[in-house]
Amino acid sequence: MKLVYFAWVRERIGRAEEETEAPDDVATVGDLVGWLRKRGPEYESAFATGAVVRAAIDRRHVKPDAAIAGAREIAFFPPMTGG
């Protein structure tokens, strides 16, 4: 699946997107965040406890308990500040 990042999440991770395959026991968005955090300090910094990061699956907002099975694109970004 494709992961895409925006705003300070993108800056902290150091890239705008990447292709990845998570292990089978990574079932939800929350699991995915936990797995990503162990990949390196840039992910740890982006998803650190206390940093509020929102997620979308295939361009729809989701909560951390959302299942990622079948997802083509998962996005992570800060709370929105448009308008």
Binding site: F6, W8, A56, H61, F77, P78, M80, G82, G83
Partner: peptide
Amino acid sequence: LMDYLKTSAPFWKSEETDEGEAWVAS
């Protein structure tokens, strides 16, 4: 429309000032 747009449309503002650039907090 404005109230919902503010909190759910995926846009992010970055402010450039004399002191540098910073992301706007929600």
